[in-house]
Design a protein around this nucleic acid. Structure first.
Length: 273
DNA sequence: CGGGGTTCCTGGCCGC
DNA sequence: TGCGGCCAGGAACCCC
């Protein structure tokens, strides 16, 4: 399930292959999630950025002009991007592909079809709700303990649920949210946090995301980087997926329960309310 | 507008 | 071995 570290790993890998390449013919699966692939046809890639879990591919009519469109890619749970020779074996769940002007092909495959594509005018994110209201990038200076505390205070929902909502900070999913809360020793089900807790959580959010990027992402089942390799961060998890095992800090057995329809794992002792 | 619930999908896994 | 049932999970979407 690609979260910020996985999406950033993908971005770094495909950028050199895609930069300055023109997208020629496009093919797409008939779902409306993927048919916008055709809207990018004819444009040249002049850069690839990331906001939270979204990839923003800057498109221009030509190499020497300002970009006027963005191809926005969300990988969902099982989305995978690769730039390969056309002779490479076709993925089983191909959802979109673009012929490139260097004879290679950009392919987007996605087993569960939770991913989606859109082409919009540069900077116009108004039709993509989560992106339009996305919180600060975790490594940006706009993300501070106080911004985090304020964001959490602005809603009455459970802390973990708010973090998954992408408003307090961009890019957390279930894995890194559980990891950050565990490290910060904050209970996932509280509805507000003190500034002291916000300071800890601010630090641990940055730590777990940085560690995830440094390890090339977390591969639990499907995630592969564009070059087909697994990440290594799954060997470094302290909390996510460790329900029933001993907490690495206090040896209490980690618990798991569904919080607002999402599986949540935490230490009932160090993360007590 | 916020909160709460539902839906989209399919492979993998469990139990019989 | 086969199969029904269930689960995971991000974000759009719908209703109140």
């Amino acid at each position: 399930m690609p979260e910020l570290p996985e999406v950033e790993t993908v971005r770094r890998q495909i950028e050199p292959d895609l930069n300055a390449r023109r997208l020629l013919d496009a093919w797409s699966h008939p779902s409306e999630k993927f048919t916008p692939a055709h809207d990018a046809t004819g444009a040249v890639v002049v850069g690839i950025r990331r906001r939270g879990k979204f990839l923003l591919v800057d498109l221009a009519r030509d190499l020497d002009v300002e970009p006027d469109q963005e191809l926005i890619i969300h990988l969902g749970m099982t989305g995978h991007l690769e730039v390969v020779q056309p002779s490479a074996p076709e993925p089983t769940h191909l959802r979109a592909s673009w012929q490139l002007d260097d004879s290679r092909v950009l392919r987007f495959s996605d087993v569960r079809r939770f991913g989606r594509l859109r082409v919009v005018e540069s900077g116009d994110h108004s039709t993509i709700p989560t992106l339009a209201r996305l919180g600060p990038e975790p490594f940006d200076e706009a993300f501070t303990p106080e911004s985090l505390r304020l964001a959490i205070a602005s809603s009455s929902r459970h802390l973990k649920t708010q973090l998954l909502g992408q408003r307090p900070v961009a890019g957390l999913g279930n894995i890194y949210a559980d990891e950050a809360l565990w490290r910060a020793e904050v209970n996932p089900a509280v509805r507000s946090i003190t500034l002291t807790q916000a300071r800890r959580l601010h630090t641990t959010i940055r730590e777990v995301l940085r560690q995830g990027i440094d390890n090339g992402g977390t591969t639990l089942r499907d995630y592969r980087s564009p070059d087909g390799r697994e990440g290594a961060n799954q060997h470094r998890l302290d909390c996510y997926g460790r329900s029933g095992q001993a907490c690495g800090r206090c040896s209490t057995v980690l618990e798991s329960r569904t919080l607002d329809q999402r599986t949540t794992t935490w230490c009932p002792s160090c993360q007590a309310r």
